[in-house]
Simulated assay, not measured.
Amino acid sequence: MKPMVRKTTVVGLKNCYRPLSISAIKCQEAQKDGNGASGAARGKKPLSRIPIGAAETHTQKIDTGSTIEFTTWKAAALFLLLGGGVYYFFKNEKQRLEIEKEAEANRGYGRPLVGGPFSLIDENGEPFTEKDLLGKFSIVYFGFSHCPDICPDELDKLGVWLTELKKRNINLQPVFITCDPARDPPEVLKEYLSEFHPDIIGLTGDYDAIKSACKKYRVYFSTPPNVKPGQDYLVDHSIFFYLMDPEGQFIDALGRNYDEETGVEKIVEHVSAYVPKADREKRKDKWYSFLF
């Protein structure tokens, strides 16, 4: 009798010894990376996206993110630079137009509100009229040599203005007209004004000529009544500097509210905004004449 042999069938045994494909290996590695065991942590290089046999090009090494950031920074800087320049230009232009309109209003229409013909003599005894104001900016002040405090203070301030304006290449003609011709002959004015600034021109004349000049410039002055010869007295008068343009026309009055700094800046503004009369007349027919 033959002994009985029991047959056992192992299901799927053949599959256990089947070699793994490349895709299966990659799948296992990806699963391990998902569980925290990444290839980079084990010192392995990440898989390259460059095809086998292909060379790495220069454009593949460029960091596009940094390029975008750099370009954005340059564009922002250019925008700020151009915007600041445009703002500065229009701000200065607006201020210049305002100063020009102010000067045009002060000039008046027809007969000038301030200024006009006069005939006096300077500290050297030479004739001086309104025609000597032409061709240059002038500043006119009315006072008298016996003034105890106001005139000396204002003339000191004028001297500072003249010095600072010369540093900015602005030559202003300063004119001092006395309101006290009885005590201010040419030689007295020459000595008195030399203490303040060498460029100041002193003007005097007879009483009627002085009174006429004061009237033309709308200057108030008065002397005490019944003054005896040799008697000391004070002259009451207006305290303004009258700024005149190169055409001899009034453009602004600077009072005591202007100090050594603000007075200079105001004069510089007017000089910079000045437009000759011929050019002012030409643009009256332009469509943009309303700006002025």
Results as ranks from 00 to 15, higher is better:
Met4Ala: 13
Glu93Lys: 03
Cys27Asn: 15
Ser194Glu: 13
Leu234Asn: 08
Asp199His: 11
Pro225Asn: 09
Gly115Leu: 00
Phe250His: 15
Phe196Ser: 03
His146Glu: 03
Ala273Phe: 00
Asp63Ser: 14
Glu98Gly: 04
Arg107Ala: 04
Leu243Ser: 02
Arg18Pro: 02
Val86Gln: 10
Trp73Ile: 12
Lys26Phe: 08
Tyr109Glu: 14
Met4Lys: 12
Ser119Cys: 00
Ile25Val: 11
Ser145Met: 06
Leu80Glu: 08
Cys214Lys: 04
Leu97Ala: 11
Leu193Met: 04
Phe241Met: 10
Glu281Pro: 00
Met4His: 09
Ser222Lys: 14
Asp206Cys: 08
Ser212Asn: 12
Asp63Gly: 04
Pro19Glu: 08
Thr57Arg: 12
Ser119Ala: 12
Thr57Glu: 12
Glu260Ile: 04
Asp245Lys: 02
Ala105Cys: 04
Phe90Arg: 10
Thr178Cys: 08
Met4Ser: 11
Cys214Val: 08
Ser238Asp: 05
Asp184Cys: 08
Gly263Ser: 05
Leu81Met: 13
Leu158Ile: 05
Tyr288Cys: 02
Cys179Asn: 12
Lys216Gly: 06
Lys7Trp: 07
Gly36Thr: 07
Pro174Ser: 01
Tyr17Glu: 15
Gly84Trp: 02
Ile121Tyr: 03
Asp259Tyr: 04
Ala213Cys: 10
Ser119Gln: 09
Gly110Tyr: 09
Pro51Lys: 13
Leu165Glu: 01
Lys74Glu: 09
Lys2Ala: 13
Arg18Trp: 09
Glu281Ile: 08
Glu126Gly: 06
Ala105Trp: 05
Ala41Gln: 13
Ser138Pro: 02
Lys136Phe: 03
Leu189Gly: 01
Ala24Cys: 00
Phe240Ile: 00
Tyr192Ala: 02
Asp184Ala: 02
Ala37Met: 14
Lys166Phe: 00
Asp153Thr: 14
Ser38Tyr: 02
Val10Asn: 05
Pro3Ala: 14
Tyr109His: 13
Gly135Thr: 08
Thr204Trp: 01
Ala40Asp: 12
Asp279Leu: 13
Gly125Cys: 07
Ile267Arg: 04
Gln173Pro: 06
Phe240Gln: 11
Tyr88Asn: 10
Tyr17Asp: 12
Phe137Leu: 07
Val10Gln: 11
Leu203Pro: 08
Lys45Val: 10
Pro229Ala: 08
Ile68Ala: 14
Lys101Cys: 09
Asp208Ala: 14
Ile52Glu: 14
Gly65Tyr: 10
